[in-house]
Structure formats: structure tokens, C-alpha cells
């Protein structure tokens, strides 16, 4: 199925595939598990009315569909346009000898960052879910090979922990999603859209212990062929204790994520009760 999609993009304009997908989504919405959580997000967090919230769920699913299709289009060789906001800061971090943590999110199309980033000698190590299919892994490897991106799958034997630590010790870039708790029960509760929500502790603890900078990267879909990359630096960790420093970083990330989600409310893809 995924290989067929990749072949399809060689033959068919992206906009046609989007249109077909748009017709299918209402049926998908009827059966999707995340409908309630998504609807509640627009009602309770964004303060939309019922109809606007329902439309919000549709647009959210539609955007998710587009970014998934775009990934396969990219594997098929399609080139997208990128506009970058905050590039100077990113270049500045690349010039430093130490590594840094680049926080991604289930927002926009973070994977696209791997196609445009020129990391100038600093390898990017992206922590990925190990359940990805072979086709996806091959597609990424094919494209990422040119941009110095290495994928680190989360593994039972904790090899990802050793690889993450080594990446930062060697002055490389570590890319991890900051808005999904997995692999460890350790979390940080931080204010997000007016109520405390859980964020994974690991990446903030690692950044504090290794004393490396953190930067949030958001990649938003702007048009059929265009993406915008937002480079949002996190302020240095504040506080006396390790826990305070971790919390300050997590709170800074949560605030940045909220700002971007408010700006692009249909491009955040967490279809469960994030505040549970």
C-alpha cells in the first residue's frame, strides 16, 4: 500500500490526491477513535462553538492526511518549498562545539525538517518509534542520507539511550518529540492551555545533565507545496536545583508549543486527552 502511494505520486498531482482524501475523511471521522478528544480540544481549549469544533476535527484530520501524503510524495522525490523563521539562531547553534537538543512535536510536519536542514557537519540523531514500517524507514533513509540524519529507533535493550547520550557527548544534534510520553513513566506536569498536562521528562533531564541548549522546531504546512520552519530557542534553564531547571525548560517548551498550536490549531496531532 505504502509503495503504491510512492508510485502514485510519480503519476498524479498532489492536489488531486488531497481532494480524494478530503472526500474520504468524513467517513473516517465516524469511526476514528480520537474524534471525541479532538472535538473536546477545540471546544474546551480553543473555545470554539460546536459547529466550528466539528469543522476543526475535519480540518485536523485533513491536515494530518496531507502531511502523511507529503511524506510519501517526498520519498517519491517531490521537492517542497521551505521558508525559515529564526535560521540565524539555528546556524549559531551549529557553530558551537557542543551538541544541542532539537525538540519536535506532533505538530505540522516535523519530519520535513530532515529534508531541508543543512546541519554543516553536525549529525542529526532523530529518535523514532521502532514500529515504523520498512517502507517508511527506507523512504526516510533514502532522503535523509543527503542531509546527515541518523534515525535511532526506540529499542527494548535501551540501545537508544546509549545512542542519545553518545550523540550529545560527541557534539551532535538530538531530535526528540516533546509532546508524547513513551518509554518511561517519568513525566513533568506543566501548564498547557490553562491546565497542567504531562510531558516526557527524559529529554529535559538529558539537556540539564549534559548542559546543552534546547531549541524547538515547528514545521507548518502553508500551501500545497510550501512549508514554514519556525526555529524557537528555549531560554537557558533557570533555577537552583536540577528539578527546577528541568521544569523551567519544560514550561518554556509547553509555552512555545501552545503559541504555535494557537497559531495553527488544525496542525496539532494528538488524538487523545492530552490533559488526562
Amino acid at each position: 500500500m505504502q509503495r503504491m502511494l510512492i508510485r502514485l505520486f510519480g503519476l498524479c498531482p498532489l492536489v488531486v490526491v488531497y481532494a480524494v482524501m478530503g472526500l474520504v475523511i468524513p467517513f473516517y471521522m465516524l469511526f476514528a477513535n480520537g474524534f471525541r478528544a479532538s472535538y473536546d480540544f477545540y471546544r474546551k481549549r480553543m473555545g470554539y462553538g460546536p459547529l466550528r469544533s466539528f469543522l476543526g476535527v475535519y480540518l485536523n484530520e485533513f491536515n494530518l492526511g496531507m502531511v502523511v501524503l507529503d511524506r510519501f510524495a517526498a520519498y517519491a522525490g517531490k521537492r517542497f518549498r521551505f521558508e525559515i523563521e529564526g535560521e540565524a539562531h539555528f546556524r549559531g547553534l551549529l557553530q558551537q562545539p557542543e551538541g544541542f537538543v532539537m525538540i519536535g512535536s506532533h505538530f505540522g510536519n516535523h519530519e520535513m525538517a530532515g529534508y531541508f536542514i543543512k546541519s554543516e557537519g553536525k549529525r542529526i540523531n532523530a529518535l523514532v518509534f521502532s514500529g515504523e514500517t520498512q517502507t517508511v524507514m527506507e523512504g526516510r533513509s533514502g532522503r535523509f542520507g543527503a542531509t546527515n540524519v541518523r534515525m535511532i529507533p526506540i529499542a527494548e535493550d535501551m540501545s537508544h539511550i546509549f545512542a542519545m547520550n553518545a550523540a550529545l557527548a560527541d557534539g551532535e544534534i538530538l531530535s526528540v518529540a516533546g509532546d508524547r510520553c513513551f518509554g518511561s513513566e517519568k513525566i513533568i506536569r506543566c501548564p498547557f492551555f490553562g491546565q497542567e498536562a504531562s510531558f516526557p521528562m527524559g529529554l529535559f533531564r538529558l539537556a540539564v545533565q549534559r548542559d546543552v541548549p534546547m531549541v524547538a522546531l515547528f514545521v507548518t504546512k502553508e500551501s500545497v507545496n510550501g512549508y514554514k520552519v519556525w526555529v524557537d530557542p528555549l531560554p537557558p534553564a533557570g533555577g537552583d536545583s536540577r528539578d527546577e531547571r528541568m521544569r523551567s525548560l519544560c514550561a518554556a517548551y509547553a509555552a512555545l508549543l501552545e503559541k504555535r498550536v494557537r497559531q495553527y490549531p488544525h496542525q496539532w496531532y494528538n488524538f487523545y486527552d492530552f490533559w488526562a
Partner: peptide, 14 residues
């Protein structure tokens, strides 16, 4: 201990 604690142990030794 879990995976994050392993990370701490690695950094501690280093």
C-alpha cells in the same frame, strides 16, 4: 529504575 535512570547512570560515570 527505568531507561531515563540508565541515562543518568551513564552521565554520572562519564
Amino acid at each position: 529504575l527505568d531507561s531515563i535512570d540508565v541515562l543518568e547512570l551513564l552521565i554520572l560515570l562519564e
